[in-house]
Every structure is written in C-alpha cells, then in structure tokens.
C-alpha cells in the first residue's frame, strides 16, 4: 500500500529530495558549514570548502534578495517588464514575418530551391555574431534589442514552417487540385493544419532563442532590463543580485516552455506521423 503510493509519486519525491540535498550542499558551501565540519579531519585544507559570498551567494541569501527585489522594493519589475515587452514584440514580429514567408517558400518548388541555401547558411551562423552590426545600425536602445531577438527567433520559425510544407504528401495536394480547390483553400485545409505541429516545434525552439536574445541584446545597455540588471550587478560584484536575475530567467523559461508544451499536447492529434519531436 505504502510502496504503491510511493511508486506513484516516486518522480516527485526523488526530484524534491535531490533538489533539497543540492540546496543544502550549496548553502553549506556559502556558509562554511562543510569547512567547519571537516576542519578536525582535514585541517586548513578544509577551507577550500568555504566559498566567499562574492563568488557564490547562498540560496537563502538569494531567496531573501529575491523577496526584497520582488515584493519590498519592487525594483525588479521595471526590468522584467521591459525584457518581457522586448520578448513579446520580438516574437510577434518574428512569427508574423517567419510563418507566412516559410509557408509560401515551402509551397512553391522553385522558390523553395532559391531559399534553401540561404536558410541553411542562416541556420549555421550564430546570429548573435551580428550584434556589433546591429549596434552600429540602431544603437543599443529598444529597437536594437528587439531586432536581435527577432533575428534569433525568426530562424527556427522560418525553417520549420518551410519544412512543414515540404513534408506534406504531394498526393494530397494533387488530389485537392483535381477537385479544383483554390490555392487559398489548399492552404487553409491542407497546408496549414499539417504545418501546425511543425510550427509549434519551431515556436518552442524560438522561445529558447528569444531568451538568449534578451540576455545578449542587453549586454551593451546600461538602463533597464533583466540582462542589464545582471550585468550591472556583475560589474558591482553583487553576486546575489546576479543569481536573482538568473533565477528570474529560469522561472520565465520554465513557464514559457510549459505553456508551449500544453498547446502542443492539445494539437497532438493533428501531428503527422513523419514528425517525431523529442
């Protein structure tokens, strides 16, 4: 009975256990618990296990600082707000350019041949290398940051929507054609539904890259943004604040990927058997 209920939530129990052990071990490093504990056995060598807070903030200090920044001073909100704004606008632009462009390019054979090498090159390039150029073109303000996010997000969206159309069995299209369906109807009834799972996979990848875009786009800046806050804290050696920034991005990333996963599960039924996403 007990064993069964343990097995039912083994994942949760073991996961929580591992996390707790990890946090305690970390706290102990920052607070010198382990150094004190091993002092009799190892002598001064045990001091290796005592890590100064400037190098590693303790979980409790991070939690306290996070609480302060979120609920007492509220100073994190403007940073978070601006970064979220950059992300959302960047995503909307990337999706509204990338999806139609990819679908159309995938639909017509010659057009597809024309864009394939460009997509491959774009895909192989770390687009962040363009950051210094983007700064030259648009400075380091909001437009530049959004641009770099669009640049990163549009690649998987473009590639996946292009590939989505190319994987549709041509038989279907020929069939629809022989019933003299219009091009628009074809798009709506065959191309789009078949493409949705691919598009979502692209969106999921784009989200991860968009987060990179936020952090990278804010490297140069000095005013507002979570990335800026992390850099500023790093420059003033406030390691606890750096960790609060990282934690904020972790939570945002987990929430976003969970949202996409839910949507994906909902459209699972549509997924053609050819696409196997991990």
């Amino acid at each position: 009975m007990l064993r069964e209920s343990y097995l039912a939530c083994e994942r949760g129990i073991l996961g929580a256990l591992a996390m707790a052990v990890f946090l305690v071990a970390w706290e102990g490093l920052a607070r010198g618990w382990w150094a004190d504990l091993l002092q009799p056995a190892l002598g001064t060598a045990a001091n290796v296990l005592r890590i100064r807070p400037i190098f590693l903030a303790s979980p409790s200090a991070i939690a306290e600082m996070a609480f302060q920044m979120y609920f007492v001073t509220g100073e994190i909100w403007p940073h978070l707000g601006l970064s979220a704004f950059e992300f959302v606008v960047g995503f909307l632009i990337a999706a509204s350019i990338g999806i139609p462009l990819g679908l159309v390019a995938g639909r017509y054979r010659l057009l597809s041949y024309a864009v394939e090498p460009l997509l491959a090159a774009l895909n192989a390039t770390p687009q962040v290398a363009l950051l210094p150029l983007v700064v030259l073109w648009m400075g380091t303000g909001l437009p530049a940051r959004i641009f770099i996010i669009v640049l990163l997000m549009i690649v998987p969206i473009l590639i996946n929507s292009h590939a989505a159309v190319r994987t549709i069995d041509p038989k279907w299209l020929r069939l629809a054609r022989s019933f003299s369906a219009s091009e628009w109807r074809l798009f709506r009834t065959i191309v789009l539904p078949a493409a949705v799972p691919f598009l979502l996979a692209g969106v999921r990848l784009a989200i991860g890259r968009g987060m990179i875009g936020i952090v990278v786009g804010e490297i140069y800046g000095s005013a507002v943004g979570v990335g800026v806050m992390i850099n500023q804290a790093g420059s003033t050696f406030q390691t606890t604040r750096v960790f609060v920034g990282i934690l904020t991005i972790v939570v945002a990333g987990l929430v976003l990927s969970e949202v996409v996963r839910r949507i994906e599960r909902r459209v699972e039924v549509w997924r053609p058997s050819t696409s196997a996403d991990s």
């Binding site: 256990l17 190098f55 990179i212 750096v242 972790v250 990333g253």
Partner: peptide, 27 residues
C-alpha cells in the same frame, strides 16, 4: 531513478540561456 534525481536540474539548466551565467563565469 537516476532520471528522477537529475531530471529537475537538467530541466532548469535547459530553461535558462547558459550565456546568462557569463558574469559569474568571468568571476
């Protein structure tokens, strides 16, 4: 079991762009 133990850490690291850690890595 190992998956249950390590899974959360991998998920968390996967959710954050690792370049975010650069200020710490320099230090």
């Amino acid at each position: 079991r190992l998956n249950y133990l390590l899974g959360p850490f991998i998920d968390i690291l996967n959710a954050v762009p690792r370049v975010t850690f650069l200020p710490l890595l320099i230090l």
